[in-house]
């Protein structure tokens, strides 16, 4: 059994740009296998684990956390060997200049996103924003050689290995939402120690960043009586609005909003209080932008709870989370599942 922090680092370093999760699905299935009765990978590379409940007629609880990450896609290979690219998911163009990347071509290739030297920038353009179409990936190869190894449509991921930091924090490229997957594993670990009546389906989902694709497929295929979504919310930093950013290390943020089931949310908050599990309140006025939006309207509708782990610098290669929050999220979810009325 891996410690939570080590697991987060291992998960964050997997490469799974949305639409290319197949390269990472086996690794996640292996982690689930340690705690589940059944594990399978579906046709879209969702990784599904089932931990059976003890009731004779168990209900089904679905927990999802997406494991895809934002990245880039090669859109053209120039005669000079430079690669043109476009974003996959919400990549902030300001944060990727001078990044080191891996181009997933015939084999993995190291590349850099070069930036024009400051000396060479036209003074008139100095304050202008850079656009994706003005940037290139340099893999050091001639056009001819590059075309042998790279194809239009190849995915590109950021090289930003997860780092353990002071105060039990971790920074890395895809803590959105591998820390959510780690929270699922924490939930399973905790459930091993507890009795639970209900079947627990855990799903590490694909293509969330492109429109909740994996979640839509998962809640159609699994007949769930309750869904719990684990994702990240904004960690607070200077200049962020207090009502939509949350301090790290103060526990999971429990979502409250129109699409989230009020009775379950109330019960979840009461449980957190009673058990002294740290939590925060996350008011969600819209559809939450998370997989909760998919589950809430799946089939005839599934009651849904949203638990969010605060992450600073979301959608940059240096996202930062607190391991304590991940553990708190897992404990809270597990206790909630185990404590449901028989």
């Amino acid at each position: 059994m891996m410690h939570c922090g080590e697991l987060i680092i291992k998960l964050s370093d997997l490469r799974a740009v949305s639409g290319r999760e197949n390269e990472a699905s086996d690794a996640i299935a292996e982690v689930f296998r340690e705690y589940c009765d059944e594990v399978y990978i579906d046709g879209f590379y969702n990784v599904v684990g089932l931990k059976k409940g003890q009731a004779s007629e168990p209900k089904n609880i679905l927990i999802t956390a997406h494991y895809d990450e934002i990245g880039l896609i090669v859109t053209d290979i120039e005669e000079s060997g430079f690669l043109r690219f476009a974003p996959v998911g919400g990549v902030d163009v300001k944060t990727i200049g001078a990044m080191e990347v891996t181009v997933h071509g015939k084999h993995d290739l190291f590349g850099v996103i070069g930036a024009k030297a400051p000396h060479l920038i036209d003074p008139a353009d100095k304050d202008k924003a850079v656009k994706f179409e003005d940037m290139r990936i340099d893999i050091g190869l001639s056009g001819e050689k590059a075309k042998e190894l790279v194809t239009i449509g190849d995915m590109v991921s950021f090289n930003s290995p997860a780092q353990k930091m002071m105060n039990n924090r971790i920074a890395g490229k895809s803590l959105d939402n591998r820390c959510g997957v780690a929270a699922i594993v924490e939930t399973l670990k905790e459930l091993k120690k507890l009795n639970h009546d209900d079947n627990v389906y855990v799903v590490a989902t694909v293509q969330e960043e492109l429109g909740l694709i994996g979640a839509i497929c998962a809640s159609y295929r699994i007949d769930a009586d309750l869904a719990i979504v684990i994702d990240v919310c904004h960690g607070d930093m200077p200049g962020t609005p207090a009502d939509s950013s949350f301090p790290l290390g103060k526990g999971t943020a429990i979502g409250i909003g129109p699409i989230l089931n009020r009775e379950h949310v109330k019960a979840m908050i009461k449980l957190a209080k009673d058990e002294h599990i740290p939590y925060q309140i996350d008011p969600e006025t819209g559809d939450t932008g998370t997989e909760a939006a998919a589950h809430a309207v799946a089939k005839e509708g599934i009651p849904v709870i949203l638990l969010s782990i605060p992450s600073k610098y979301m959608h940059t290669p240096v996202e930062m989370i607190s391991v304590d929050d991940v553990i708190a999220t897992g404990r809270l979810a597990a206790r909630y599942i185990a404590g449901r009325e028989k």
Binding site: G19, N22, G43, F44, I73, D76, V88, I152, G211
Partner: peptide, 25 residues
């Protein structure tokens, strides 16, 4: 035009991705 590696007359395209889907491998 906006850069795009598609030309008239060079063959039908096989979709890798658009704003609504990433093609299944």
């Amino acid at each position: 035009s906006k850069p795009m590696a598609v030309r008239l007359g060079a063959g039908p395209t096989i979709k890798i991705k658009d704003a609504s889907v990433i093609s299944h491998p």
